[in-house]
Every structure is written in structure tokens, then in C-alpha cells.
């Protein structure tokens, strides 16, 4: 008799625990009454590297520094401490959005002979590679941006970089690329690949960067 009562009591405790846990799980996952909550997750880049993100509001901040590190943020509360989501959790929350992310862009760097709009021999071969990348994409955009080194005045370099970019555009069109897919720009000497002081001869900075996206 005593044993039976103890058994019922134990059963009751287990039932209470199970329903309690179930309620807690519901509260955490899909209780419509749960106050709105944001979720932020850091993911590896297309090259596999992981950057860094800081999620902050008036009440606090959380750093996300490793793959799939996540924080949850309720309105008017500090972001939660970082936790690492599983790949399955990331897929469940963001699968559709991730599948819709356009492919990472591809870059081609073309170099020029000194104070000229003629490509170096190696760079001429990259025109073909660019066209191949273009054909792999459903809605290709090609951006051609000219850069110079810091030899001479900035204003002249802006013009020189623009002429170089236009020369590359002409080459791409001659190779069969649609004019409407190409945009041309000049960054002059404002974006050096190799940082140098002003008036410095640096062949690596004299380039046209083609972005295919």
C-alpha cells in the first residue's frame, strides 16, 4: 500500500516535470505570447573565414567571433551571451535566405604599361577568363574600375584611370560582352593596392579591377 502510494507520488513528480519541460520548450520556441525577439548569427564567409560582429543596444553588447555564434535580443534588454548554433539550427532558421544569397563576386586585376592605356601581356589573357565568369552567371553585372599609382596630380590620375577602364570596356565588348552589362568608373589614386606616399612610381597600383557579380 505504502509502496503503491510512493509509486503514484513518483509518477506525479515525473508527470509534472515532463509537462513543465514541455511548457518551457514551448515558451522558448513557438509561444505566440512570447515577447518579440531578434536573433543574430555570424557565419563563415564564402572563403571559409569568419569575421567579427558586435550586436549592441542601449542595455549592452555581445561580440560574435566564431562560426555560428549567436545572440538573442529582446526589446529593451541587453543581447544575450553568445551561444553557438548547430548547422541544423542555422539551416532551420535561415535555409531559405541562405539559398537565395547571390554567388560571391569574382575579381580580375589587369595591369598596364607605364603612363599608357595598353595592357601588359599577362593581363590580356585575363579578358578571356572574365568572359568565362560572366557566362556562368544568370544576371551578370560587370564593373570596370580604373586605378593609378600616385605619380602626378590626383586630377590627372582620375582621368588616366578612367581612360584605362574605358579601354578595358572596349576590349570586353570586342570579346562579345553586352554593353548594357558593363559599368565603368575611376577611383584615380584614391584606392592604392600597395600603400605609398604621394608621387610614387608603383606598377602594382596601376591597374583596372574587373568585378563580375
Amino acid at each position: 500500500m505504502m509502496r503503491a502510494r510512493a509509486g503514484f507520488a513518483a509518477l506525479g513528480v515525473v508527470c509534472a516535470l515532463v509537462s513543465g519541460c514541455a511548457r518551457m520548450a514551448r515558451v522558448a520556441v513557438d509561444d505566440p505570447q512570447r515577447p518579440p525577439q531578434d536573433l543574430a548569427v555570424i557565419l563563415p564567409d564564402s572563403d571559409g573565414s569568419v569575421g567579427r560582429a558586435t550586436v549592441s543596444n542601449a542595455s549592452g553588447a555581445t561580440d560574435l567571433t566564431e562560426a555560428r555564434a549567436a545572440t538573442r535580443i529582446s526589446r529593451n534588454q541587453a543581447p544575450s551571451a553568445a551561444t553557438v548554433l548547430t548547422e541544423a539550427e542555422v539551416e532551420r532558421e535561415f535555409g531559405d535566405a541562405l539559398a537565395s544569397l547571390p554567388p560571391a563576386p569574382q575579381w580580375f586585376t589587369l595591369h598596364f604599361q607605364f603612363e599608357s592605356e595598353d595592357l601588359t601581356a599577362e593581363s590580356k589573357a585575363l579578358v578571356t577568363a572574365t568572359l568565362r565568369a560572366v557566362k556562368e552567371r544568370p544576371v551578370p553585372d560587370v564593373l570596370v574600375v580604373g586605378h593609378t599609382d600616385t605619380t602626378g596630380p590626383a586630377a590627372l590620375n582620375f582621368q588616366l584611370a578612367l581612360r584605362r577602364a574605358q579601354a578595358v570596356r572596349t576590349l570586353l565588348i570586342a570579346a562579345g560582352l553586352a554593353e548594357s552589362a558593363i559599368a565603368v568608373a575611376s577611383h584615380g589614386e584614391a584606392q592604392l593596392l600597395i600603400p605609398t606616399p604621394d608621387n610614387t612610381y608603383e606598377p602594382r597600383n596601376r591597374r583596372v579591377l574587373i568585378t563580375v557579380r
Binding site: 564567409d45 567579427r52 560574435l64 535566405a97 541562405l98
Partner: peptide, 21 residues
């Protein structure tokens, strides 16, 4: 920006989910 926070990035990929109000 989300309704509850600002995400600052150092060159990376970030996924964000925002609950409806």
C-alpha cells in the same frame, strides 16, 4: 539595424531573424 539592436561588422557574413511585433 534590427528593432532591438544594431549589428556592427568587421568584414563578415551575418544572418538576422526578426520576430514580428
Amino acid at each position: 539595424e534590427t528593432p532591438a539592436a544594431i549589428v556592427g561588422v568587421r568584414g563578415t557574413t551575418v544572418a538576422v531573424r526578426v520576430d514580428p511585433e
